[in-house]
Design a protein around this nucleic acid. Structure first.
Lengths: 194, 194
DNA sequence: TTCAATTGTTGCCATAGGGCAACTTTTACA
DNA sequence: TGTAAAAGTTGCCCTATGGCAACAATTGAA
């Protein structure tokens, strides 16, 4: 039995991080169900419980929240071959402060929290993958803190240009600004300084 | 056999989070060795590998790094009953960007990375504790990002006053400023606006 | 393909926070 | 416990970024 096309990228993702046989993967990969989203469609809103984990096959997810003054604060973009979830809510089964939205027409593989934790307990490769997700999420956020604390906006922009160019090429500038923690006016001005 | 005084607080910490018998804990608690630090003493420097996890019995640790211009960026203070380590380095066995320093005369329980991961594999309670540490580290850093991205300095100060008052009462103002991401001048001015 | 709606740019001024200097207060340890 | 060094405060001015308004460019749905 051969793998469905839709599960191919996820298999490669896992295979890159830990030894895994395609035949084993195919035993449980149907827990990851395909879901397509239109541009701007939400899969999580503030106040809801995040009970899923999503792997991006195609398209892009944005994680953000609103601050007290109603300003949009963008924390993360998940492009192809990345996982997206509101991890704090997913882990602790608490209400989410964050929204998750598709920015482009998007195809996801989604697994429920319950199914995922069952795989984490019973499938060593998924256990490794979960550890990997947690570690990456953590190290990414720590880098981001140091960035906001000690790096001026123009340098943050240059960093994104170098290491995450898709953020600039695929997303509206308004969202890039929100990700960088500046207004669209300022981003526009920073660009002209490059 | 009764628990040594030095292991009491760690036992309580674990006990609060997961069922555990004192007699079981005493089987492996000697992996956590006591270490005392003088004020300002370092236990980790940038460029070293962080191969330990420290539980603070008494005193306070500061985690920080320098940015390109040499400015001190403080990320976290670990007071009594908190764990401190440079988690990215600890997890990935990479070189640390961070320093860890005692701010007060400090008493720690330290366990090596090797011993700790052995306990994580073999002792269910320690496995739970490790998951807990990762989750808290992650959710703390995410909150901090949203703080820097969308909350003005005066509000950040008020937040610390309410939720982490020890930062203000026990630490020099210079370090508080660095933690808040402002200069000591600005912190001094913010205080007069309260 | 068009055109209303959204997004991006830029001039102008406002504001938050930075940095220096001078001064005061606190601290540490001889 | 005296004193030098460090830390904290404040006046003054500077810089980075914010916010409004007017305009230009782009977009997407009919």
């Amino acid at each position: 039995m051969t793998l469905k096309t839709e599960h191919r990228a996820l298999f490669e993702y896992i295979h890159k991080r830990t030894p895994i046989k395609e035949s084993d993967f195919s035993n449980y990969c149907d827990h990851f169900r395909i879901k397509t989203l239109k541009r701007n469609e939400f899969i999580l809103r503030q106040g809801a419980h995040c009970d899923f984990l999503a792997f991006v096959n195609k398209g892009c997810l944005r994680l953000f929240q609103y601050n007290e003054e109603g300003k949009v604060l963008t924390r993360y973009f998940a492009f192809e071959n990345k996982f997206g979830t509101s991890l704090s809510s997913f882990i602790n089964q608490t209400v989410s402060d964050e929204y998750i939205q598709a920015i482009e027409p998007t195809e996801l593989l989604m697994i429920t929290r319950k199914d995922f934790y069952e795989l984490v307990e019973n499938v060593p490769e998924i256990n490794v993958i979960y550890r990997d997700i947690l570690e990456m999420a953590y190290t990414t956020t720590v880098k981001r803190i140091y960035n906001f604390q000690g790096v001026p906006a123009l340098e943050r922009l240059k960093w994104v240009m170098e290491y995450q160019p898709m953020i600039l090429t695929r997303l509206p500038s308004k969202m890039v600004a929100s990700f960088l923690g500046v207004t669209p006016y300022t981003l526009s001005r920073l660009k002209s300084e490059l």
